Simulated scan of single mutants.
Amino acid sequence: MLRKSRKSLLQLIFLCIVVYFFVSLLRPSAPKTFSWNTIRYKTTAKSLPEARGTCPGLEHTSKPALVVSHVAADGDTEWLNRLSSKYNLCIYEVDAPSDPTVTNLRVPANRGHESITYLTFLIDNYDSIPQAGAVFVHGSRFQWHNDDPLYDNAATLAALNVPSALAAVGYHNLRCDWNAGTCPKDFGPPQGSFENTINSILQPWSARSVSDAAMPQAFAVLFGGDEYLKHGKSKGLKLGRSDSLRSQCCAQFVVSKESIHRHSREEYVAIRQWLLDGYGMSRNSNAAPRDDRIAGRVLSYLWHILFIPQQNGPVDLDELNKQACPSAADCYCRLYGKCDLRCNLGACDGQYRVPPYMRLPQDWAELHKNDVYDVHEPGVKALHGRLYPKAFEP
């Protein structure tokens, strides 16, 4: 009798487990939400960098600011001068020799690639952001990540319709094609997954694997501050093992004045200090990774979280991902006036393709440096070369 009762009890337990399993599968899962609304990181630095990053002309301009993170290796900036009738140029010389007499367009350190420039602009020009908004770009004209058939940022910026780009949510990545970003569903394992952690250990040379593995902790520190560091509270701050944050490559975007002012100046100071605190003899172990490739790439995931407006309350991850990855067709039409393209969800014919090994031929800039674009008639250009040289033809 006892044996039968025990058997019946085990069968009942097994049945309950099966029922619970199927109910869990059929029940709609609750949205994953995160407390990514306010930057709460607190620096341990005894002093903050002096303001030397002001951009002349912002107080009276009706044009959007063009914020350029330029280093000597990017080559000359003559190509940017041709855009001055459309933009108020703010060209930061990131690796310029230290000169205390220079009080404009300087950054406190050459850290985190373009992010140090972007943050310095936001901090030192917070009260002078143009009503027309701001565009943030890298300093080289030709790069594999520029979303243009010729990888030419002069063409991209000449064609960019800033008001249209900002009309929907006040922010837009300049890239429309989904290659190289995390928009495609098969981009790789979730950033906080065990697989990604293992990849970052086995492939320490891979900036992508290592930065993806570092990102969940970095965001928890930035948005959680003392609540995370002292009390160990990670719920709503740290991506789980199966959570994927999607975004476009490659930290070039346009943003409205209103979206910038969604966050206080002190928040941008905190992000920059998180970046700066990760370097030097007094390095803070909770701050940015020492490797610039990693720190800069972690912050490249942050911009759309800061600038895409969310409902009051926690950030819905699924909704954020949808907003961060509009279809290529909608993007090309909205940003560049190319509205009759043949497209699938993430790419359009003839607009962009990843070059071999993500590198342009050595003579690419020389071949196309004389291409001129009309900023008053976006997309119109006098072009002397072919669309693709032989190295890029099938």
Rank of each mutant, 00 (worst) to 15 (best):
K233W: 07
P394T: 03
K86F: 12
A287R: 00
L48Q: 05
C325M: 06
L160V: 12
M1W: 11
Y336I: 00
P314K: 05
C331I: 01
E377L: 06
F392I: 00
D363L: 04
V71W: 11
K4T: 15
H113G: 00
R283M: 12
N321M: 05
G350Y: 03
L383Y: 02
R82T: 13
K257G: 02
S98D: 15
P97C: 05
I116L: 04
T43C: 03
L275E: 08
A347F: 03
S206W: 00
H384Y: 02
S242M: 11
G57M: 14
M281N: 12
N146F: 10
K230E: 12
G232E: 03
L341R: 05
A159I: 05
T54E: 10
N284A: 11
I13F: 06
S47I: 08
A167Q: 13
K7E: 02
T77E: 13
G379F: 04
C176M: 04
H145T: 09
L202V: 14
I39S: 00
S69M: 12
I123G: 01
S24H: 14
L222S: 04
L83D: 04
Y171C: 06
S242T: 15
E266A: 15
S242R: 06
Y126T: 01
R6H: 15
H145E: 09
Q217E: 15
S84M: 06
F14H: 06
Y92W: 10
M215A: 14
A96S: 15
D349M: 04
L275Q: 01
A45W: 01
A45V: 09
D95S: 07
G192V: 01
W178M: 01
S69N: 08
G139F: 06
G313I: 10
S69C: 14
S264P: 01
G346Y: 02
D147M: 07
A287Q: 05
F22W: 11
I116E: 03
A65C: 10
R290K: 14
L229M: 14
K235V: 15
R52I: 06
A158L: 10
A167W: 05
V254P: 01
K185G: 13
G346L: 01
F142A: 09
A132Q: 13
A51D: 06
L345Y: 07
Y171T: 06
A287G: 11
S69E: 09
R272F: 02
F14Y: 12
P184M: 03
Q11E: 14
L239D: 04
I91M: 07
H60Y: 09
C249G: 05
G278H: 07
H70Q: 14
F194M: 11
Y336E: 07
L15Y: 05
F21W: 15
W205D: 11
H376F: 02
D292T: 13
I39G: 00
K238G: 07
P31D: 02
Y268E: 04
G346S: 14
R272G: 08
N173G: 12
A109G: 10
C249D: 02
N146S: 10
P31A: 13
A324C: 02
S5A: 15
G188Q: 03
K7A: 14
L275F: 12
L320V: 02
Q323K: 15
P49N: 02
P204A: 14
S29A: 14
